[in-house]
Design a binder for these strands. Structure first.
Lengths: 211, 211
DNA sequence: GCCGGGCGTAGACACTGTCTACGCCCGGCA
DNA sequence: TGCCGGGCGTAGACAGTGTCTACGCCCGGC
């Protein structure tokens, strides 16, 4: 795309497929090359190291999640409803693509060298998503009455806390411990009890939904 | 200990040392064996697979964290103060021992076969810690006035949400994105801004501290 | 006093990520 | 038209990994 290379995209595609199918453990460099139909040395022409390829795969995840964020918020007009939809899309994406989510937040992929074609680092790719979260919280704050808004922490703090909450919810739900705490069925079960948890989380940080 | 084996403990000790020193990437099976002064095949007599050794290391982490939890809550008497101390110890442990924390919550170590000596699985080892969290929240609820308590979600939901919040706070702080949201110094800096976030999180889920 | 099993050793095997030498093929230039 | 050069994929080597198997030692019980 950027300079005409097509194998580069195919490698990332194959990597995404592997992560979605077999989780983060099955995305070896040679396995990606096999999946893309090239020899094991070929990826090196486009990605100097295995981690930089993983980083590119994770970037795809952030772009995908950001796009879902945008369409989710577009479906509502009240800021509070937009935030609820965005939160659900965040948690839904993470639980439907656990491998991708795990890869995206692997701390050792954060600051690899910038991609060979000058593309951004993983952290920079994730910034628009984070800014969208903060903006949503700020807009929710703006429509609260002045009394409750004055008693609350700064919007940036609330945004950070709320986002942390959704993020941790995903991790612990995947781990299966929240099901134990809530007395739900075993961690293997598909019961989407977490939806109720998501609304409880939003209410905790922004107050009950305004009448 | 259980049946007299001493190398077993030494292997786990060496593994903990490696994780604390070099993170979760440096805790290879052969490296642990080298550190313990035995050949690379020796661990197999005590742990059938590499993952089961990692699981034993993670169990140590949970035991350690649980112990810190206990001493932290023992330092206060009001439930709310106990919970604040426990939350700070949770976050503090995670940020001071990032490698251990990462290992403890690796989902692929959750349900390995029970240890050769019949020890518990990782998930069972973590249960007492989780129960302690829920108990603290329940006790905080008990001393709230009836009106606010009635308007709040069930204690189990609040406990799950609060714990998720602390957990996600750790992950995102380690990732360095909360610093960006809060406009703090770069992720490499040591500024313990997160302490203020922890109290904001507790207040969000349990209401402002009672007078 | 001898045997047997627990436990550590040593080597092999398949596999991984990285590095290097090679060859093909296609575009620019004389 | 013919040649050259560089991008790009191939093939093999290398160190390292986790696992498996054969071996040897040493200590306790019949």
């Amino acid at each position: 795309m950027t300079d005409g290379g097509s194998l580069r995209e195919r490698l990332v595609d194959a990597g995404v497929d592997l992560v979605l199918a077999g989780g983060t453990a099955s995305v070896g460099l040679r396995e990606i090359a096999r999946r893309a139909g090239v020899s094991h040395g070929a990826p090196r022409r486009h990605f100097p190291t295995h981690d930089s390829l993983l980083s590119a795969i994770a970037r795809r995840g952030f772009e995908d999640l950001h796009a879902r964020f945008a369409t989710a918020t577009a479906g509502a007009d009240a800021p509070r409803a937009q935030l609820a939809a965005a939160a659900r899309s965040y948690v839904g994406y993470a639980l439907d693509h656990r491998g991708m989510f795990e890869l995206m937040f692997r701390h050792d992929l954060l600051d690899g060298a910038p991609q060979a074609d000058g593309g951004p680092r993983l952290r920079e790719t994730s910034l628009p998503l984070f800014r969208a979260i903060v903006d949503l919280v700020v807009r929710c704050r703006a429509e609260q009455d002045a009394a409750t808004a004055a008693a609350a922490p700064p919007a940036a703090v609330t945004a950070a806390a709320l986002w942390s909450n959704l993020h941790g919810l995903v991790q612990l739900w995947t781990w299966g411990s929240l099901q134990v705490v809530l007395g739900a069925d075993g961690p293997g079960a598909e019961s989407p009890h977490y939806e109720q948890l998501v609304t409880a989380v939003i209410d905790a940080h922004l107050g009950p939904v305004p009448a």
